[in-house]
Every structure is written in C-alpha cells, then in structure tokens.
Design a protein around this nucleic acid. Structure first.
Lengths: 188, 188
DNA sequence: CCGATAGGTGTACGCTTGTACACCTCACGG
DNA sequence: CCGTGAGGTGTACAAGCGTACACCTATCGG
C-alpha cells in the first residue's frame, strides 16, 4: 500500500479563493463562473469541483477572505493610534484612505452585501467583520460613538464614491461632530 | 390601410418593470431571467424582447423606478417637517421607518449598487437619487450637515439591518450630534 | 522494478439562458 | 365582408452553464 503522490501545489485552494475575488470584482457575482475562476487561477476546470463542493461554497470562502483582509487593515490603522486626536485621524484615513482607492474593495463590498441576502453564513461573516471593526474602534471611543463611527465608514465610503466633492476636510468635520460628545474610555 | 388593433394592455411595459423589481428582490440579479420576470408579470416570454432591447435595459429601468419611488418617499417625509426638531425627527424616521421595515428596499439597494459598477447609466441614477435626497435634506440644514445626514442614512440603515441592537434612541443621538453644529439656513 | 493507490483532470451531459423571428390575430378602412 | 398591416407571441437555436466521474499520472513500499 503506497502512500505516495503528495499534492503538487499545496496552495491551490487559496489560489482559487483569491482568484474568485478577482473575478467577482471584475464581472460581478452574476458573471462569476467556474470556468472564469479556473482561468484566472490558472488551474484546470476539474479542480473547481475537486476542491469545492459548489460555486456557493467558493463564493462564501472568497467573501470570508475579503472580510478578514479588510478587517485586519482597519485594526492595523486604528491600533497605531495612541491619542484621541490620532484615533480621529485614523478614522478619517479608514474612510478616505487607500483601502478604497481602487474601486476593488468597494465593488466587492456591494457584491458581498447583495450575496448576503441569500446566504446566512455570509451574513454571519459580515456581522463578525462589523464586530471586529467595533472592537478596534471601541478601544478609543465609547460604545455609542463606536456604533456611529462604524456606520459612518459605510455611509461616507459609499457616498464619496459617487460624490467626489465630499472632501477630506468634510470627512474630518463629520468625524469631529460624531466624537465630540464622546465619554472618553480607559483606552490604551 | 388599416390603423387598427390598439394595444390590449397599454400598461404592459410598466407591469413588466415592476415585476422585474420583485424578481430582483427575491432572487438577486444573478437569478433574474427573462423567463422569471415574464412569469411574475404574467406575460408571455415574447413580450420581453418586444418591449425591451435586452435584460440590461430592463434592469436599468427597474432601478430607475426604485430610485424614483424611494426618493419620493424621502421628500414626502422631509417636506412634512416645518421646524428644526421635526426635521431631525424626519431624518430618524427615514433611517428607521417603514421604508426599510421589509428587507425589500434594502435588498434592492444592495443589488442596485452592485449593478452600478457595470452600468454607467445606473450610476447616474444613483447620483440623481442622492442629489434629490440632498435637496430635500438641504431645505432644513446647511450643505455640510446635509452631506453628513445623507451618508448617515446609508450607513445606519445598512448597519441596523445587521445589528438590530442599534436602537431608535441611538439613531436619534447620532442625528443630534450631526446636526448640532449646523448653521441654520433660511428653511421654510 | 513493479503494482497499487492517492491526487488530480479532461470531457461530456443535461439544462437553462438570452434572443430572434416566422407566424398568428383581429380591428378597421374601403 | 374582405384584405391589410399593426401588434403581439410561441418556438427554436446556439451558447454557456454547473457538475460528475471515468480515467490518467506518478510516487513509493515492497
């Protein structure tokens, strides 16, 4: 009984998941097919059903990757802040910074929300993302303010992508207003 | 030369557009097909290509209907307010009120945003919706505050749908903070 | 050096899709 | 009462889809 024949490419799965995000970003979920993903990941079509039960599972895993990656970026930016002023500026950076420079992340978010309607597990992923994000914000602000800021990221990001006239200074002013009545917490 | 044979059902087009929104709400754009729309509108398949050039046109028109309808509702609620306090309460109602009671409108919004990535005309529809909405809000608040409130509708609506613990009072508090430094305009 | 077997893939199947268009219906001018 | 043409539809077609699985490949214990 031979054991033999190790996987040639142990990263195959991850490569496919990453490629899935690329395909969604470019074609939307309705244009995302096994064949296109296989082409993007440069793997044979057969690998799709070998590594994943179906398209739905693949999409779900892809969105988990998106949430993890983006969420980690939030945490990174917020944890770098040590003063209240820095924390405010960190919020401004999250809203206006390079995460959303490319339309990619924003596009993927839209598809994520749309997909979440049909998939409870993805809804869970979103809730987890939001909660992670609240933990990071909550290190600097009280709970009430934290909810407000978290929602502000969402709203301002979206609106800025359609209305570029919303300047950096306006975002700063909005963050200021939202944090003005904050009851400072222990913080770090 | 006969003139003859008037359309049996002059509302056909509108009926199809309305049915399209229903199908999108239930199945998402990726599950929206000519056949399903035809079934929902109780119209033969042939009517699809008779009244609309293609699926894309149909989706575009459907989203125009969504924008018009929802936007009109905003205006209605905001125009009913005559004092500053009422205007603030109107904002709270828009964010927490019956527009979003059913997941329908929110679901459709997600699909709208996702679709806008691929369709310039729909992006234009969104910009128009936002601008209408800003006009209505702007009757009560200064421009800067208006942008903030408009974005707050978006962010809070979305976040509340995932985090029901965001209460009405929290929304009120957030609207308060955003409008506190407002430089009152002439208003009505 | 030779099975045996884990790992991986090419191909083919049944189905659904968007779309076009040949055809049908029937109100009306003559 | 008939012929005409505007209005509308059933049907058929090619393309593309998800998915399953028979088959191939290459390693390694013996």
């Amino acid at each position: 009984m031979a054991v033999a024949h190790r996987p040639k490419d142990p990263q195959r799965r991850e490569k496919i998941i990453a490629a899935t995000l690329d395909v969604i970003a470019e074609h939307g979920i309705s244009g995302t097919t096994h064949r296109r993903i296989a082409a993007a990941a440069e793997v044979p079509l057969g690998s799709m059903t070998y590594y994943f039960t179906g398209l739905e599972e693949l999409l779900t895993e892809a969105f988990m990757l998106l949430a993890t990656t983006t969420s980690a970026r939030y945490v990174e930016i917020l944890d770098a802040a040590t003063t209240r002023a820095e924390a405010r500026e960190a919020m401004v950076e999250i809203i206006t910074g390079d995460i959303w420079e490319t339309p990619r992340t924003l596009t993927l978010s839209y598809e994520l929300y749309a997909f979440s309607i049909k998939n409870e597990r993805v809804r869970e992923v979103i809730r987890h993302w939001m909660s992670q994000s609240r933990v990071a914000i909550g290190r600097h602000f009280d709970p009430m303010t934290t909810y407000a800021l978290d929602a502000a990221i969402e709203g301002l990001t979206i609106h800025r992508s359609f209305q570029p006239e919303i300047t950096l200074d306006m975002v700063r002013e909005i963050v200021d207003r939202l944090t003005r009545n904050d009851a400072p917490t222990a913080s770090l």
